[in-house]
Design a protein around this nucleic acid. Structure first.
Lengths: 364, 364
DNA sequence: CGCCATAAGTAAATCGATTTATCTTGGCCA
DNA sequence: TGGCCAAGATAAATCGATTTACTTATGGCG
């Protein structure tokens, strides 16, 4: 890669400021009022007030005019129920945990965005943790979150923990694990879309970049690619196949593997990358080797991350509906949380990919 | 923009799977054991066990051998204190809230990554919410988080709420608000770095893309740019200045404004964009107009988001140490949370930018 | 011997809301 | 007049840990 950041003197400069004085000016005026105080103010018991505030069915015997009085006072005194107390009593936290490999990477961030959308609507909040592929963290975080009383877990491209007593929804999970709902892409269709496209453009010699071994999509997708190639009568050449290795979330691994591919010397007119990030690395490697995109080599990526559309040329890719997958994950999780203990639940939900044709692919 | 995603039939396809049976197979064996049960098991009182487990100074009179017995039993029974109960009693949640404009955008995600790093180390978790520039959400989320008992707030490029009784740290905040620590970039230096670079390459006619009005960095940075230009004896031409308008987190606004710039017909040899995202849009617009980068026009961005390094050519930019800023935000917030109520606190912490030279700038 | 200090530990209040079982009052009917 | 019901509300238990203020032995010391 021509411009690794480390080639520059990247001083991690972070001058701690001159802390120009200080002073606690925060008070906000509105000091907390609790249920007891509100009840006293009203001359009622806490029980009554609580029933009214929660619109409990048991409050039906409380006359409308009293209810109105209670609500007015609550508004006036700015009463906010203490979540911690309510959680403790109800044994519910209205919180779920989300485990991702790395939050600053487009894939996870897109899914999170969908998850958030739905969860907040339903009155849930979520904790995010990123394990950065460290085995100990992958092991520890589910426990840690459980201790934090999360009512469910969303896993994004993360192996399933065992022995977690809350519902789990795994985005791009494939293993059938009891208690887990998998949300996965229709990889057969995805592979078919990509290879149909390349094959339709006349490409026969296609190189492949497989995903890292730790990525849960790698194996399934690779199988789908081979099946699709078979159907389309395309050969999958061992010598045109490389596998990502480093766990860096940058295009670097894609760059490295494409260099390796080029060094091998086997000719190819198209390249199908495991994801957009590695496709970017591949494009760079190809350019450095003097190949033009798409005139000499067509490149197709996977995921359709935001920056795919803004490359030069725009990156042709297989889009995963990540935001929607996140929303579905959240929706499914909330449903499962609120379902009776032994209810049935979906084991697998399939999302459909789309081919997004941009400028990085062209006819042979 | 040549390839807006909406030009394609983007079917939001998301087939809900055939829910292949279900069945609650989760049980995990390890049912919860609480303090009382643990104490009973040990033949001790809950008080004793609690003191031991918390390594409270009051436990100094409890002999080592008893302590060991308690801890062994806790491990054996897999005792986990109930956070909700502990929170309620201690009136502490060990949770902070993070408010960002949009989580799926590189800027916020980088900051979050730093925030997470430090917070988890300190035993805190965090809730994230993204307001997507909706005024009602900007207003509501701080309250919502407060109700969730967060002990502090990190704001990322988000206006400060008033009347929040917890410490706040604002990343790229500039207003002096009581109770708030701002973490901001040294914009003077940033502007100076960029203009020095361009000027050093011989550029005199420089176009500028200002940030959206809602971005908290816009004004400060623009002032810094003009000051630096003055020092360097560069003119800032009104006709070469445009301002981003749309709130889309894509390069689209940058593309649009660059088109406008080109239409105006005023010649320029370099362009300084408000951020990397808009720089990408600008590059595309310039290319479509037949200008080569960097031969005809040098482009410099701001932020150094991940994909900046992987553009073609690589994007020259002013790097903000976003991860570090996130870490500092978390560190400062935790310190403030644990400081005595009326303690002093830093009002402003300054981060230092760096010039990252890549291929998008060249001599005239 | 008497008294205090220390060791070892415990009882009970507390955090704030939820919720079930219970209580009082008045009205109505037989 | 007694009995019963409904309306209107409440007392008290509960969730599970923390923490202060106590209790009871035991040993040491003057």
């Amino acid at each position: 890669m021509p411009e690794p950041v480390t080639d520059y003197a990247t001083i991690r400069a972070m001058s701690r400021g001159k802390s120009d004085q200080g002073g606690a000016a925060r008070d906000a005026g509105e000091q907390k009022v609790n249920l007891r105080e509100l009840a006293e103010h009203l001359g009622l018991s806490v029980a009554t007030v609580s029933l009214v505030m929660n619109r409990s069915p048991a409050a039906k015997s409380i006359p409308h005019h009293t209810q109105a009085r209670v609500r007015a006072a609550a508004r006036e005194l700015n009463y906010r129920p203490n979540v911690m107390a309510r959680m403790l009593r109800q044994q519910r936290s209205f919180t779920v945990g989300v485990i991702v490999p790395e939050i600053s990477e487009g894939y996870a961030a897109m899914v999170l965005s969908g998850v958030e959308d739905h969860l907040l609507q339903e009155g849930y909040f979520y904790f995010v943790v990123s394990h950065r592929h460290r085995a100990d963290l992958i092991e520890e975080y589910p426990r840690l979150l459980q201790q934090r009383a999360v009512e469910g877990l969303v896993l994004v491209d993360t192996p399933c923990p065992t022995g977690v007593p809350v519902p789990i929804v795994a985005v791009s999970g494939h293993k059938h694990v009891p208690g887990v709902t998998n949300i996965s892409l229709n990889h057969s269709r995805a592979a078919r879309l990509a290879l149909d496209h390349l094959s339709g453009l006349g490409h026969r010699k296609i190189a492949f970049i497989k995903g890292q071994a730790f990525s849960s999509d790698t194996e399934v997708r690779w199988k789908a690619v081979r099946a699709a190639a078979l159907e389309l009568n395309l050969s999958v050449d061992e010598k045109l196949t490389v596998q990502l290795e480093s766990e860096s979330p940058t295009p670097q691994p894609g760059y490295d593997m494409t260099c390796k591919l080029l060094k091998a010397g086997q000719p190819f007119s198209a390249l199908f990358a495991f994801n957009d990030i590695s496709a970017l690395g591949a494009i760079r490697a190809l350019r450095e080797a003097g190949r033009r995109i798409p005139e000499d080599v067509s490149v197709i990526g996977f995921d359709d991350i935001q920056s795919a559309a803004y490359q030069n040329p725009g990156l042709t890719t297989i889009r995963q509906p990540l935001r929607e997958m996140g929303m579905t994950a959240a929706e499914t999780l909330v449903k499962r949380i609120n379902a009776p203990k032994n209810a049935e639940y979906p084991k697998n939900i399939v999302a459909e990919p789309e081919l997004i044709v941009r400028g990085s692919t062209a006819a042979v």
